[in-house]
């Protein structure tokens, strides 16, 4: 464990908690893409099946359970509890265009052709594009609530910190996982446009960002 990975995990946890609290406190999921949240729940489910097969550390197990719990709680709030506030007309990204190619790629490019490893690879590839429905929805509505932009900032920051963690681990441990690194680079690049808006609009204090 290094400071970049720890900060990255905490940033990821912060994003997940920010979103869950935002929906819970405002009792509304307006502006939130339910499709992205379903994809994230799928990412955690397929990646953390090893909870059943191997124990790495208390930290690892605890965080995985928290991530899975929060992901499903968020999906529940969006599609059940606060269903009336779900903005389905703007959450129209065709997720099958993400899941099918990612599923195929996981079969073609992986470390080991075993079920757990294929699912892990699927989850890594899926996570890199899972935010697209949310970014697409924001571009369609033309605005995002401030709290949603903080959620996206921490979510984008987490994988950027992981990139530094992988540089650190390659240099100090000789460890590197090409699949995770390539997917992580793609994932972080997808946030660049948003990061730019977040920083520039954030300074001007406007309470909404308007992606081009």
């Amino acid at each position: 464990m290094n400071i970049f990975r720890l900060t990255g995990d905490l940033s990821h946890l912060a994003a997940i908690i920010i979103l869950l609290l935002k929906i819970w406190k405002t009792r509304s999921c307006a502006g939130i893409s339910g499709k992205s949240q379903v994809l994230f729940a799928l990412v955690f489910t397929t990646r953390y099946l090893d909870l059943l097969t191997s124990f790495i550390s208390l930290y690892n197990t605890t965080m995985k359970i928290i991530y899975i719990g929060c992901a499903y709680a968020t999906v529940y709030l969006i599609y059940m509890k606060f269903k009336a506030t779900y903005d389905g007309n703007h959450d129209t990204f065709r997720v099958e265009f993400l899941v099918v190619p990612v599923g195929g790629l996981a079969f073609l490019v992986n470390h080991d052709f075993s079920p757990l490893e294929i699912l892990w690879t699927f989850s890594i590839y899926l996570e890199s594009v899972a935010i697209l429905p949310q970014l697409f929805m924001i571009s369609k509505t033309g605005e995002a609530e401030t709290i949603t932009t903080h959620y996206l900032f921490f979510l984008g920051l987490y994988r950027a910190l992981y990139l530094i963690n992988w540089i650190w681990r390659f240099y100090f441990e000789g460890f590197f996982d090409m699949i995770a690194i390539v997917a992580g680079v793609v994932q972080t690049i997808l946030y660049c446009d948003f990061f730019y808006l977040y920083v520039t609009k954030g300074e001007s204090g406007s309470n909404k960002i308007n992606p081009a």
Partner: peptide, 10 residues
């Protein structure tokens, strides 16, 4: 091979 290749990251 999979056992050797443990994914220790979240």
């Amino acid at each position: 091979e999979y056992d050797i290749y443990k994914h220790d990251e979240l």
